[in-house]
Write a protein that binds this DNA or RNA. Structure first.
Lengths: 200, 200
DNA sequence: CGTCTGTTAATTGTTAACATCGTACCGTAC
DNA sequence: GTACGGTACGATGTTAACAATTAACAGACG
């Protein structure tokens, strides 16, 4: 059921993203294609693709002929604003699409929830942050929010770099479980309420 | 003063984007790397990079091992919502950064305004749409809104595909001139008011 | 007749070599 | 001592060949 990345580009992209989230690369430092290519044992092509992709996701800043730089996390003021926009987008999509959620897409959401639970049990913050976002993403997809996904991802990626809210991992899981339950019943209003309680 | 794209990738990306905006490619159709590469007289590499970039900008949908598809424009309901979010982002950035606008960055805004005026005089809708967005982008950059630029671009790209609002090109220019004037005086509140009147 | 499977053509994915661009360093002139 | 210019190095930009994947089709089998 889980989606294993098949192409080298996806694997490289995911690996670099994980490294960025776990703070392996210092903010403001430059990343070199050759160095990462040799580390992963691939050519520069997929690494280059990953750089373009991660630049558009907001993790890296791209400078022509000079390479990419690790971006700094957003300041508290922007964080607050981004959170509000994110709430608005998820609310909009769920209100519009919760009634059309299919069995199949709901199953994907359930898998995402299980993975989040596993991460919470393990207690690794960076993994939880990833699974958290992936769960919300699956909800948006289930509600047919493909059109908003790009903008939404942009916002989330900026937030991920400073994922520090939860000290209580059990509560993290519970909050998301309470999003899933009403969604499974096609109850848009309750789903939205749970989402707004979770994103803050 | 104008920024000419130097790399082949940028030129290819811009050309494909223009073609998409002017409706040269049918929504839902697939784009092939080889075909576009030979049309532009370049190799598949830059075209591939452009596909990745334009996918992230929201114009194209990417399918692994199968290529990219021209996305459909957003429906009226989503359009309305996107407009609201766009207003919020621009408002946030301008309120926060209008006081720190430098002479240099203001000059870039002025150039963008001139280019918009030229497009309005020429009366070509697709060019006006592009210049319109570029003007707003220059304002955001001038106000230090780099952090929001990615998400903002996502939203705008979706809107551009259905740029049909203005029949009166002179008014299009005037509305943007009225954004520029208070910005030059570091008057955040008036700038925001003009922006909110323009984006609708 | 419908379904399954093997083949094939077309397209994307990846690689390595070559071209081009930016930067740092060093020598020289003032 | 400082400023300017050339040169060398290291990085990204681009290309074309090769590998892997996909989807369509034809033929065999039930």
């Amino acid at each position: 059921m889980s989606i294993q990345p098949k192409t080298v580009r996806e694997q490289v992209t995911n690996q670099i993203r994980d490294d960025l989230l776990s703070g392996r690369f210092e903010a403001g430092s430059m990343l070199r294609e050759i160095e990462l290519a040799s580390r992963f044992g691939v050519s520069r092509g997929p690494v280059r693709d990953a750089f373009i992709q991660l630049s558009h996701e907001g993790y890296l800043a791209y400078y022509a002929n000079r390479g990419v730089m690790v971006r700094h996390p957003p300041n508290p003021e922007d964080r607050k604003f981004i959170t509000a926009i994110r709430q608005d987008i998820e609310t909009h999509v769920v209100l519009k699409g919760a009634s059309q959620v299919t069995e199949e897409s709901l199953k994907v959401v359930e898998v995402a929830l299980d993975r989040l639970k596993a991460a919470c049990d393990a207690g690794k913050a960076t993994v939880i942050a990833l699974r958290d976002v992936e769960f919300h993403e699956s909800v948006l997809i289930a509600c047919g929010g493909d059109d908003m996904l790009g903008a939404w991802r942009q916002l989330c990626s900026r937030m991920l770099l400073t994922y520090t809210r939860h000290e209580n991992y059990a509560q993290t899981y519970r909050e998301h479980f309470e999003i899933f339950t009403p969604l499974a019943d096609n109850d848009a209003k309750s789903t939205v309420a749970a989402i707004r309680a979770n994103i803050r």
